[in-house]
Structures are given as structure tokens and as C-alpha cells.
Design a protein around this nucleic acid. Structure first.
Lengths: 331, 331
DNA sequence: ATGAAAGCGCTAACAC
DNA sequence: GTGTTAGCGCTTTCAT
């Protein structure tokens, strides 16, 4: 038990010489009830003097809303990759006077069809980021908006389509003379429904070129490095590499250097995500930048709408991600 | 109003043919009251069948604890730099059955001595990371444990001392023949009480060498790049650079390349933090690695102790951060 | 304009 | 062993 004796609204009421009702009205800034300016001031002064903080649990209990929004993230990815999204969403959620909770959900619990929400708390709404494998399990009883690359399943979402970016990338590589263009990915990035995979395969087909898949264990730099290294060691030859993510691209970059190759002369590289760090490499890496800020803004707007009016029609939008050309592709 | 009719403990009680008391006892797994196995099963079955989720606000109200732990982070830094800490702490907090909230507090609100806690919610405890400028403002009414590099002011903390690492770095640079060793920092990193600054200045003095400060606007790569670029453009010459952070070091690395210099031949570089990315540069950068996992583990343990027994003596520990030598210093 | 009183869903002391 | 009951602190009708 750690409960220090808390200042309650009754204390404020007594000090200000009014009732708890009045305190509640004044402190919640309700303009629909008319209270003399003089009384309002007395209440505010008393609250300040006592250092009164309303008990949010009590308020939530009686109001039926907690004012808490939670963000669900896939556990398998490092928070570092999700930092921009977290930061953007938290800022927007807080700005509108809500609390922000974060939950990392495991892929397993999704695949096992465990119907356990990650939190026991009743939150007012949930934002999901890149929750593809979990989409089926989402308890639809609460307002939910999905965002990211894998969320076009049902209900509200703000999806990012990476296909245009990858298509642009392959066109760009071909137009600058590349002919042996590989795709470096983890196993998630080679499913037929993956937008990047589609963009790569279809554009290669468009040029009548043979797809070449380099498979990494995970979507991180270390995996990208070892996968690329193994490929090169086994005598593989490429003159361009399309990475499933910036991290994989970074690993590939390092592996190419390890093997004595020069980027972009011997091999061009493209990534996906917009990691800031990539601009500071010796050879900045061409990448496909996702409109994170816009995605977050729209997702939060969608969620606010859904909370306000649960009955409205599905809100769905797809935002394209575009290629940003840097030196790693030789320009 | 979004309130879908909620299943309450009374519903479970009715279905199981018991009272709410029994439901509460069973679902909270209380072993101190003896309830027949058969009854327990009936209750569990009923709860599952109805999809019962206890109302956490009601529980928090009556128990006087929310089960929520919040983490306060300084707003001026990107979440990306704080990702490891966030991830570690969240995992530990959740593992012990608590909820995790994040709050970013601004330096301004601290300097203005605004006594406003970032959250209105009554949390059971607060973890603060790198909250130097804010330490004075912390409301001590709730269990608080500080961690990071700037937290040795009062109460409980798990501090990381970067001084040993920087001292090692300067020794290392001198022993490998460097003589014009600069310190690249933002304005926070040149206060007399900053451990990095002390380590640099004192070790330079130890060798009778002149300190040389390169000042960047912020602790990010872009600032490090432009500050270093400006220094070099104005005819400055150095053969080693100690960065206040990995990000600044990364920017300096890029600026040196921009100016046609070779790392480490012309100039050695060291950073601080342990950004994973630095291992994948053409020239991996020597850095001072902080014991993040250990820090997080201890901070959470301290906080649990403090919550359990508010009256215990201050829990304080300082962990050293050590140098990890990579190629950027020529080895 | 202000106050009295009901009740949000839960836990736990107390009686049976 | 189980049920009855009294709050936890707040908001909000409904009288006054």
C-alpha cells in the first residue's frame, strides 16, 4: 500500500466554500452551466492551493471512458524501426488530451489465434501498426484503426503501398544499365501478397528479366550482411540489389564492401524505410520513403472519428511510398 | 458515448450461481480464502463464456493502485535514441503484470519550474530517463527512480558514468599517436559537471594537451556534420575527434569524408552510445557502450522495491560505460 | 446558481 | 465457504 492521502474534490469544495458539484463543473470548464466568475476563481484558487489532481480512475469509472489510447506494435521488430511512428502518434494523441499506452503483441499469440487483448485496461481506442498477422484476431468491440504496410484487411485503415516505390526503383536500376537485379528479403517479404515482392517480380517480368531472391533470416542489418556475404561467397554475381528494408540494405552494403566490391560501381543498392542514418554512409543509399507523418495524422483522425461516431462507414485510404534517389544507385 | 454494454462480475456470478465476492476471489486467484475446486471451475468457465474483462478503472479506484508504470523521457531527443531503453523497460514492466505508459517531458516546462506532472493519471511509479534538467521538478509524492547519465541528484537512481569510457578513449587515441584531439558536442555536453566533458578535459590536461571544442547545435548527425564541416572549412586541423554521441560522431565521419579526408588515417573518431548502425559503416566507429540492459533491470527493481516499501533508504548505483574499439581509431 | 443524492464496477471487511 | 454490504472519488440528474 503506497497510497498517500489524496486531495479530493470534497477538500477543494470545502476550502472554496462550495459543493463538489460546483468544483466538478468549474474544473472541467463546463460552459453550459452558468457559474459566477467570482466562484470560478475561488474554486481554481483552492484547487491550486491544495495541489488537487482528480482521480482519473474514478472519473473513468463514472464516465465510461478512460481517455487512454493504445498503440499495438508487432514484437518481432525492434522499437528503433518503429520510432518515428511511435513518436508521431504519441504526440498527436497527447495533444488532444489523451493518454498513450504502448503494447507489443507477439506474432505467436496471433497465429495461435489467442483472443487475448494485450491490455486488460479499457482503452477508448486502439491504433495498430503493421499488424498483418494479427488482423484476424483483433477484437472488434473497440474502436480500431490499422496503419502501415499490412493492414488492408477490414475496418478502418491507413495503408502504405510500397509497390510504386519498388516499381520505380527497378525501372530506375534498369534505366541506369543494371541487368542482374536481386531482391534481398526475409521470409515475410516474399509472400505473393507482399507489395514489395509484387513490385519487384512484376517489373522484372516487364523487362523479361529473371527474378533473383536473396533470403535473410531477419529484417536486420546483421542478417542482410550474412545473407549477402553467403551469396557472394558461393560465386553469385549481381549488379544491383533491392532491399526489403533499409536495415537489410545496410547489411548488404557492408557485405559488398567486405567482399571488395564498390558501391555503386560494381553493385547498386536500394532500401526501404527512410532510416536517417543511411544519408551518412560513405555512399548514401537510395531508398523508398514512407509518408509516416501523414499516415499517423490520418490514422489518428480516423480513430477520433470512429470513437466519436462508432456507426460511420469504414474509413480506408492507401498512401503511396516513393523512391528517393541517392548515390548508391550511381546518380 | 461508445460504451458497449460491458460484462460485469455480477453477470459472471449469476451464470456461475455464486456471489460477486466469490467471483472476485476466484478470478484474482486468491489462495488465502478456501473455495472448492468445483466452484472455482464454474466461475472460470462462466467468465470465459461471457468474455468477462474486469473493469480496471473500478478496480484501481477501490484498490488505490492503477497497476500503471510510466516512463518519462526528455522530449528534445528523438525516440530513436531512446529505443533500447524504452524496449527494455516496457518488457520488464509488462512481464510483472503492469501497464506501461510513456510521457515525453519538455525541457522548457522543467526550466520554467512548471510543477505539472505530464500525466493526470495516478500511476504506481515513475521511471525517468536522462532527466537532468527536470530533476528539481519531480513531484516526490510518487515512487520515482531515475536512470541514465544525468540523474545523480536525489532519491533512487541507476546512473551511467561515461567518464571512464571517455578517459579510456583519449588514452587510446594518444597511445596510437594522435595529438590534436577535438571534442564534438552540443551545448549540453560542455557543462563542467558533464562526465564526458570532464573525462575529455582532464585526460587532455593529464597529457598537457590543449582541449579543442567543436560546438554543434544539436546532438544529431546533421548538426555534427555541419559543425565539423565549418571547422574544417575555416582551416581547422585535427587528427582525432571524440564525439559527445554516436550521432554526432556519425555526422563528423560524413563531414570528414566530404572534405576528402580518410578515416582513420587522417583522423580518428570515437562516439558514445552503441548505435547498431555504426558497425555497418565502411569504417566501423569506436564507441563507448552503455550497459542499457543492466541499467533498466536495476531501475525497475529499485522501483518495485520503492513501491513495495516506500520507507526504505535511497537506492543508488553508478554503472561505468566502457570503450569498444573498432576501426575508426585505426586498430 | 448551487446542493443532495444516486451510482459507475469493483474489492474486502464482516457476518452467517 | 459464501453472501451481504459498505465504500473507493467522481460526474450528473434533479430539486431547490
Amino acid at each position: 500500500m503506497i497510497q498517500t492521502t489524496q486531495v479530493k474534490s470534497l477538500d477543494v469544495a470545502r476550502l472554496a466554500g462550495v459543493s463538489r458539484t460546483t468544483v466538478s463543473y468549474v474544473l472541467n470548464g463546463r460552459t453550459d452551466v452558468s457559474i459566477p466568475e467570482e466562484t470560478r476563481n475561488r474554486v481554481h484558487k483552492a484547487a491550486l492551493e491544495l495541489g488537487y489532481k482528480p482521480n482519473m480512475a474514478a472519473r473513468a469509472l463514472v464516465m465510461g471512458r478512460t481517455g487512454i489510447i493504445s498503440l499495438w506494435l508487432i514484437q518481432s521488430s525492434s522499437i528503433r524501426n518503429q520510432a518515428d511512428v511511435i513518436q508521431n502518434l504519441q504526440q498527436k494523441v497527447n495533444q488532444d488530451g489523451n493518454e498513450f499506452m504502448m503494447h507489443r503483441v507477439s506474432q505467436n499469440s496471433a497465429e495461435n489465434n489467442t483472443d487475448k487483448t494485450p491490455s486488460d485496461w479499457q482503452v477508448d481506442g486502439v491504433l495498430g501498426y503493421n499488424l498483418a498477422p494479427i488482423n484476424g484476431v483483433i477484437s472488434t468491440s473497440q474502436p480500431f484503426v490499422g496503419c502501415g504496410c499490412y493492414c488492408e484487411l477490414a475496418g478502418d485503415y491507413v495503408s502504405i503501398d510500397l509497390k510504386p516505390g519498388v516499381v520505380q526503383a527497378v525501372h530506375h536500376l534498369v534505366s541506369t544499365g543494371r541487368r542482374k537485379i536481386a531482391y534481398l528479403s526475409n521470409r515475410w517479404g516474399v509472400r505473393p501478397e507482399d507489395a514489395r515482392y509484387q513490385g519487384y517480380v512484376e517489373t522484372m517480368a516487364h523487362y523479361g528479366m529473371e527474378p533473383l531472391i536473396l533470403m535473410a533470416d531477419f529484417a536486420n542489418a546483421a542478417s542482410g550482411r550474412s545473407a549477402t556475404k553467403a551469396f557472394l561467397a558461393s560465386g553469385g554475381e549481381i549488379d544491383a540489389l533491392v532491399g526489403f528494408s533499409d536495415e537489410l540494405a545496410l547489411g548488404a552494403y557492408r557485405a559488398l564492401l567486405d567482399s571488395g566490391r564498390v558501391v555503386p560501381d560494381d553493385c547498386a543498392i536500394t532500401g526501404v524505410d527512410g532510416l536517417d542514418e543511411l544519408e551518412y554512409l560513405e555512399v548514401p543509399i537510395t531508398t523508398i520513403v514512407q509518408p509516416i507523418e501523414q499516415m499517423c495524422r490520418m490514422a489518428w483522425d480516423f480513430l477520433k472519428n470512429r470513437i466519436e461516431e462508432p456507426g460511420i462507414a469504414s474509413q480506408q485510404v492507401v498512401l503511396p511510398a516513393n523512391l528517393v534517389i541517392r548515390e548508391s544507385t550511381g546518380c
